[in-house]
Design a protein around this nucleic acid. Structure first.
Length: 421
DNA sequence: TCTGGGGTCCTAGGACCC
DNA sequence: TCTGGGGTCCTAGGACCC
């Protein structure tokens, strides 16, 4: 059996832990730059606010019903996520953190007499120890566990825990479960299925195995088997190092000065290097991109990018910050106004065991490494942006964040921001 | 010009996830 | 006026190898 623990309306719940007065009231959390709604309390959902809806479109509802609005506070959400995960680790020998608000628990080999009670106990512990409400579904496969956890949200009398295993129960649930809500069935497949007259998970499960293979290939076949109770998605409890890494942001205002764009992108690169070094990797290839505002259809549009290669690999702050700002100078075109930019490390390798060039200047490398280590420790001790490269300007990223809550549980966030109205 | 039977690696694009 | 920011896996086709 597998369990899925899913935090309810996670970002909203994080805000409510420190604002208990907002319990029972409509609350939403916005994406970066206060762009669109990415988390909604049940009360906000009931008002018809949709996931991903732009803020300016829902503003009338917000004002009419006094919806409490928060800018996103990822430092807070990341920290609360760690706390929930720490609680979950006490309930199973192996836990896979699947996303910021979801974890799978591997219950195979555990002797638990009453799994339904166990699910409810996990949920109650998370609530008690972190303040976050969590829905826990237990089922024979990960895909079914996700469905079971959804039932907890729909039926409060389940008290946050649901064990779904008897075939007749699974059939009953799948018969009313929309196929597009099944984990692994995305928009495209749902559309294809709908054209075939298939709208429920149960109808999908009734397809012939060869038909599923033919029309939906390997991923579809796995989902089909999972719905039949046959585990087909691996349990991945040990974190592999990332294969790619991206730091990008939209800006509060469009940028037209190359120095401004350089400063922002240099700060993205600096943040990316800290992430890279934390996982012990080197970059072999970096893409730097900048783009115009795609919603301003009448303005001239551009998506420019520059690829920089490091055949010998690097994890050096100065090298990458300099390369990123040079790339910006190369791609910048004064005819355009840039709304969004970022750096992507598109090829990476583990530092340990990486074969470096034979004739490199080892002494210079060593000096650079000591500088990078000093920058790492300054950032972790005093916060990112304490010490900057000149090209970074004041080291702040220009974002609109009118309603960010305090950093209740951490000292700082990953990228310092300059709030712009 | 035609001719066999294997392989690997890389890339772009699609589909999916949160 | 105002529209987020990350990731992974799979597949097909091309280029190349013997």
């Amino acid at each position: 059996m597998f369990a899925l623990a899913d935090c309810n309306n996670f970002f909203v719940s994080c805000e409510r832990v420190f604002r208990p007065d907002l319990e029972g009231k409509p609350v939403i959390v916005l994406s970066n730059n206060d762009g669109c709604a990415v988390a909604r309390s049940n009360e906000a959902k009931a008002l018809g606010i949709k996931m991903g809806e732009p803020y300016f479109k829902i503003r009338p509802i917000v004002e009419q019903h006094g919806v409490k609005v928060f800018s996103s506070n990822y430092a807070l959400y990341g920290d609360m996520s760690r706390r929930v995960h720490a609680v979950l680790r006490d309930f199973a020998p192996a836990v896979e953190q699947y996303s910021i608000d979801e974890s799978f628990l591997d219950l195979r080999g555990m002797m638990i007499a009453d799994l339904d009670a166990y699910a409810k106990e996990i949920s109650a512990s998370c609530r008690h120890l972190t303040g976050i409400p969590v829905s826990v579904g237990i089922a024979p496969t990960k895909t079914l566990a996700k469905i079971a956890s959804k039932l907890c949200k729909k039926f409060p009398r389940l008290r946050g825990g649901c064990y779904m295993h008897r075939p007749q129960d699974i059939e009953k649930v799948l018969c009313t479960y929309p196929v597009e809500d099944v984990w692994g069935i995305g928009r495209r497949s749902a559309k294809k299925l709908s054209a075939m007259g298939i709208t429920t998970a149960w109808q999908f499960a009734q397809l012939k195995e060869y038909e599923v293979c033919k029309s939906f290939a390997l991923p579809g076949w796995r989902t089909w088997k999972e719905l039949h109770g046959e585990p087909s998605v691996d349990f991945e409890d040990q974190m592999e190092p990332r294969q790619s890494l991206c730091v990008s942001r939209s800006f509060a205002h469009e940028l037209t000065d190359v120095r401004d764009l350089c400063a922002q992108v240099a700060t993205f690169a600096e943040s990316a290097v800290r992430k890279l070094r934390k996982q012990g990797s080197l970059v072999l290839e970096m893409a730097v991109f900048a783009m115009t505002n795609r919603f301003h259809e009448n303005d001239p549009q551009a998506f420019s990018s520059e690829l920089v290669v490091f055949p010998d690999g690097t994890d050096d702050h100065a090298t990458l910050v300099a390369a990123a700002s040079e790339a910006v100078r190369a791609l910048f075109d004064k005819r355009f106004s840039y709304k969004k930019a970022g750096v992507i490390f598109t090829r990476m390798a583990q530092r340990d065991g990486f074969q470096r060039a034979l004739f490199r200047d080892a002494e210079a490398d060593d000096r650079q490494e000591r500088l990078s280590r000093a920058l790492d420790s300054l950032a972790s001790e005093y916060g990112p942006g304490t010490v900057l490269f000149g090209v970074q300007g004041d080291g702040r990223v220009w974002m609109a964040q009118e309603n960010r809550s305090p950093q209740y549980t951490t000292r700082w966030s990953d990228i310092p921001t300059a709030s712009v109205k």
